[in-house]
Every structure is written in C-alpha cells, then in structure tokens.
Write a protein that binds this DNA or RNA. Structure first.
Length: 455
RNA sequence: GCGGAUAUAGUUUAGUGGUAGAAUAGGUGCUUCCCAAGCAUCAGGCGAGGGUUCGAUUCCCUCUAUCCGCACCA
C-alpha cells in the first residue's frame, strides 16, 4: 500500500513530529543547515551506534578515532584539496555557462596558467581574445572554493587561515602512525571515524541530501597493494549488507560504478550505492580505492616515514579502501523508505515502518482511559518498570486511545502497551503492533522480556 | 551561480490598502471499556529590512528561505 512519497511530505512530518527542523529557523533559516530535534537525534544516535558496533566494536581489526575538525592547513595541501577545491571559473556572459579558466588558457598554449592569479587570467583571456564555444565574450575569472575557512589567532594581523575539514578521511590518515605506534595493528586493519565535515556547496538542496554541514561515517582500511581488488569487492558487499540491515529496501538501491573521469582525484576505483530518493537515484554510500595516494602525499609533505614493514624485509606504503557514508543521507533515505499509509478500520493512517532497532521510541505505554484513576496508576507502574528494562519508552495519556496509536504510528514506534480493566483483574496488558495494528495479550511479568525479544 | 515559482498559526490553507478567518494538530476540564468520536475552553500567524501611503500582510525594491529546471557535486 505504499504511495510515492514526496520530499515535502517527509519535511512536513519531520518538523511536525520533532525529527528535523530548518537550521536557525526563527531567523529565516540558513541554507544548507538542518537541526535534529528530540526524535531525530535519537534516530541518528541509534544509527551511529549500530554502525559503530557493526564496524568497530564487533570487529577485531578496526580501530575508532575521533579527530579534530580543524587540521593543520598543510594537511589540505598534501591531500590535494587546496588545489582540487580551488577552481578558477569563467562565465560566458550570454549563456552563463561556466568554464575552467586555467584549462581554457592551457588549451590556447598558455603554460602554467594554473599558477596565475584570477586578475592575470582575466587579462590574459582578454589579451588572447578568447571566446566561448558559443562565440560569446567571457566575464571575469572567479575563484571558486568548496572548502569553508575561518581564522585562528588573537589578532587579525597574526591570525592564520584554517579550513573546516571537507572530509573526515584526512583525520584518519594523519593519525595512521599514531594508531600503529600505540596499538600495533597488523595489516590489514582499518581506522573508523564518525564526524562532521563541511563543504561550501553552491546549491544546498533536497532537504538533508546536499548540506553545507554534514556528518560522515567512514572506514579507511589499510591493506597490502596486492589485495586491493579483493578488499574493494569485500567492502562493497559489506556496505550493501549494512544498509539493508537498517531496513532499506534493496529494490530502491543500486550500484553506480564511477567512470574514470568522474572519480575523485585520489581514487583508482570508485563505486556508489545509490538510493531512490523522491528526487531520483542519488549517491548514499561510497566505496573507493584510494590507493596509497594519501599516505604517500603526507609522507612527502612531512618527511615522516609511513612505510609498513613486514618481517623479512618487504617495505611498502599500504593501499587504502575507503568505505564512507553520509549519516544525514541515510536518515533521509530511511525516512523516505519508512513512510507508509494504509487504512485501519476504514480510517487512513500514516506510519513509519522503522526497524525497531533504530526507532527513536521503542514502546509507548497508555492507560485505556485517562479519568479512571486505577487505570492511570497501574499504567504508570507498568511504564516506570518498563523504563528500567528498555530504553526509549514513552508515556501518553492524551485524548483517546485511537489518537495515541496514530501519534505513535507517525513517529514509527513499533509497540504500544495499553493498560485496561482486565489488567487490574489478571495483570495482563495489550501489546499492539505498529505495522499490522494487531494486538496480543501479554502478562505484565513477561512484558519487558517479550518486548526485548521483539527488538 | 543562472532561469522560473512560492512565502499567512505546528501543519494544510482562505482573504484584504484600514493589521486576518478556517480545518487540523496542540493545552486544560468533562466524557469515552482499544484505533484521530463528542462537549466546553484556552493558546497560536501575515519570512526579514526598506520604500510609496494618513495607513501596507496586501503595491514596489532589496535580502533571506523553500520548491522546480540548468550548471556544479573533487
């Protein structure tokens, strides 16, 4: 009974029920930022914890870190981001199409054009009388930088520019040696991290999809160069499997292998898992073969020895397979996939089919009637006891019973417990299932155990 | 960044050059023996800043945000 859900529906529900709000909303917002509300943060934390458990604590070969967002600016020179993120662009004044100014100049025989300032490029384009493919004049060359910047230092005069990291990966690479020296892992091993990253997107769009501030969860897995193909394939499989385990439907997922010209500057092989969002199939999860690009670059820049030595003499720079996923995008995918409408007793209802493991509220407890003191008292007791056993228990005694069910449906609560008059007689309650709206009778003594089993 | 559209309560919306109604959601009380029932009652709004005007939510300009295309997405 699933209808095609629109992004608007998801945004509206997210706000109404306290999942996600527009950033700085009372000031009119700030493009590219969204805030997580009380339910949203629970959902997010549940996903993070699930990921961390699956890929870090349940595995002997992966180590977690949490690196600073601000990194020595030289990091970004070595990683290629200072160069790769600073594109000088020039516009066709008529069609407004943009071209890489340095590439245009190089094509016309100007050497080392990428070392020119924007002013030099602009005048050189004029001097050569370059025209766009449509035959129009070019405007001024403008520097476009995807990295967000701020200043470190007490006074403006002595302050230095620092970047807000555009990816979390470099925090791992600069700590590679520290992890080796402190934990002494043997290859292959991985380093994992969950953290924020920042990009000055030209057009933040599509709710949580394209953000200026976002959260990544990623693993850099260090291997012997001979193992790159095998490891790459293995990580592709485990990425897919994990997304499915969160409840994402496989029919809405597909692989997209990057052609050579769409790969990042560091990647040899790259593939994305795309998800069918309301605005089309778009990237959700990436698996990249970063080769030895990053470690090599940092080794050259710093002179620090990042070779890995095997007993017996072989010495090499490890290759890296990266498995990286946008946390905000997962949340968007999950909300879109979980949204469902059906009918219960002829009445339409909206419900979120969240997997119980990640649902922000696991179980809600109500008294059947609010004005019968003995019911309320008993329900309170059940609620308090259940809270000790299960996390994510909510109390609700508002309106009538149907209203409460609908409310819980809309936030994806998998189970509702109702204390009624029979409870007072035989100490049993009804346990109602979100997806089927069916209920069963469970004794209070077994309740916590019963629910835990279903979770 | 370009082109087009939009902006009224938490949500969905009506409407006006004399500062706004509704539905629904929400609070409280009553009622209610399992799926948004009923009665009473309360609270809540013209995105921001300028301009024109005696007076602007309404007309004009700028900004901000959102949506749809295009471009961008290392």
């Amino acid at each position: 009974m699933k209808k095609q859900v629109t992004l608007e529906t998801i945004i509206s529900l997210s706000k109404r029920r306290g999942f996600i709000f527009q950033g700085s909303e009372i000031y009119g917002g700030l493009a590219g930022t969204w805030d997580y509300g009380p339910l949203g943060v629970e959902l997010k934390n549940n996903i993070k914890q699930n990921w961390w458990k699956t890929f870090v604590t349940d595995r002997p070969d992966i180590y977690g870190i949490d690196a600073a967002i601000f990194m020595n600016p030289k990091t970004w020179e070595a990683s290629g981001h200072v160069e790769g993120f600073n594109d000088p662009l020039v516009e066709d004044v008529k069609t407004r199409k943009r071209y890489r100014a340095d590439h245009l100049l190089e094509e016309h025989g100007v050497h080392k054009a990428d070392e020119f300032s924007v002013e030099e490029m602009t005048s050189k384009i004029k001097e050569l009388g370059l025209k766009s493919p449509e035959g129009n004049e070019f405007g001024e060359v403008k520097q476009f930088n995807m990295m967000l910047k701020t200043r470190f230092g007490a006074s403006e005069a002595t302050a230095i520019d620092v970047y807000l990291r555009p990816e979390t990966a470099q925090g791992i690479f600069v700590n590679y040696k520290n992890v080796i020296d402190s934990l002494h892992p043997k290859l292959p091993f991985g380093i994992a991290q969950i953290g924020k990253a920042f990009r000055n997107e030209i057009t933040p769009r599509d709710f949580l999809f394209r953000l200026r501030e976002f959260e990544q969860m990623e693993i850099q897995y260090f291997i012997h160069p001979d193992d790159q193909k095998e490891s790459y394939e293995k990580w592709k499989k485990s990425a897919w499997k994990w997304l499915v385990s969160l409840g994402l439907p496989e029919e809405k997922m597909q692989w997209h292998d990057h052609a050579e010209n769409e790969r990042a500057h560091y990647a040899a092989d790259a593939a994305d898992i795309q998800f069918k969002f309301p605005f089309g199939f778009k990237e959700l999860h990436g698996v990249h073969n970063r080769t030895d690009f990053d470690l090599k670059a940092h080794m050259e820049k710093t002179g620090v020895d990042l070779y890995y030595s095997v007993e017996g003499g072989e010495k090499f720079i490890p290759y890296v397979i990266e498995s990286s996923v946008g946390l905000d995008r997962i949340i968007l995918a999950i909300l879109c996939a979980a949204y469902a409408e059906d009918e219960v007793n002829g009445e339409e209802r909206v419900f979120l089919q969240l997997s119980p493991e990640i649902a922000p509220v696991k179980v809600a407890v109500f008294p059947l009637l609010k004005n019968k003191e003995e019911l309320v008292e008993k329900a309170r007791e059940v609620y308090e006891n259940l809270r000790k056993e299960v996390s994510g228990v909510m109390w609700d005694d508002n309106g009538n019973i149907g209203k409460r069910y609908r409310r819980q449906d809309e936030i994806g609560t998998p189970f509702c417990v109702t204390v009624d008059f029979d409870t007072l007689e035989d100490n049993s309650v009804t346990l109602r299932d979100r997806d089927s709206a069916k209920q069963e009778r469970v004794s209070v003594g077994d309740l916590a155990h019963h629910i835990k089993e279903k979770l």
